[in-house]
Nucleic acid binder design. Structure first.
Lengths: 161, 161
DNA sequence: GGGCGTTCCTTGAAGGTTCAACAAAAGAGC
DNA sequence: GCTCTTTTGTTGAACCTTCAAGGAACGCCC
């Protein structure tokens, strides 16, 4: 049973600041990408992740895990991106249940076209405003937080929950 | 015009870690509150914000600004929360356009009932895992990021954008 | 091979968010 | 007072996410 302790003043202030930062940032990036690329940030992240793999392709489940979203969400997203022609599905030769999301040439070009604007937005919001030291701190802190949270669809093992 | 520089390896790693942390955390808290309180995290934040004001009431626009969301989103949210009986609208005496969101007793009790679970989740995900120093760092960094981003509905002054 | 639990991915409905458009009241300038 | 602009809050449609349910293929065990 975890402790019932309340948050201290400092913790509350930090928590509020963190919420504000993440809320504003997500909103800002979604808006920027919606304007320039016609898709929300998460969809862009999917294309971006695919673009960095050997053959620009990945199994659905692995793509979901790497981007930290549910398979259901990914299914809907891929359906939409496929409709845009930026992605296509291929069936997996070694596992007939499997689907492979493949970045199309059009998708890659869309990424190339919109990446500079997106990177600029990220730089302007974060890296241009933090010291090198703070960037390292943010990385460390983020990794600690992420490590403490498991992916929503991790196997339902008894020693979790 | 901002620089066209790409992200360095370290910056990319930090950015990815940050995205993973915020994605997982948001998801985790939404799920926890949806289970225990029947509402998403943002709705909880609205009730929570109201509960900390003198008379547990606030003008719609100010509430939107303090929680960093749009007025439209707030309108929909308040409509839903009002349906739950946790909130009620009152018209503003000094400005006939104005609406005031007021936390009801039922809403306050709901907050009291669900706050411990939510606070526990936040502690477990963040404050139990970071050093005091890191909490301070996270606060500083969050404030810097938030300060660089303006509220989506700030006046459309020419020197912005 | 047959049965049984598991994994993979999809689906549709319910609910949340965004965006553009709108009405009403307030404020500013004359 | 009168007009023009701004602010306030809402609305509905389109889009996105979640959740529960389900079909198909896999893997294991006998």
């Amino acid at each position: 049973m975890s402790s019932m302790k309340w948050l201290t003043e400092d913790e509350q202030a930090t928590w509020r600041a963190f919420l504000h930062a993440t809320t504003l940032l997500e909103d800002h990036l979604d808006r920027q990408l919606q304007r320039d690329a016609g898709m929300p940030h998460m969809y862009y992240a999917l294309l971006s992740t695919l673009s960095e793999t050997p053959q620009r392709r990945m199994r659905m489940t692995e793509l979901a895990e790497q981007t930290k979203i549910t398979r259901s969400r990914l299914s809907h997203a891929v359906a939409r991106l496929e409709g845009n022609g930026w992605l296509r599905r291929e069936s997996c030769p070694s596992d007939r249940r499997g689907q492979i999301a493949v970045l199309t040439d059009a998708g890659y070009e869309e990424l190339v076209r919109t990446a500079p604007g997106h990177v600029s937005a990220v730089r302007a919001a974060i890296f241009d405003r933090l010291t090198q030291e703070q960037v390292e701190q943010l990385g460390d802190i983020s990794r600690i937080i992420a490590d403490g949270l498991h992916h929503p669809e991790g196997a339902d093992v008894p020693w979790r929950r």
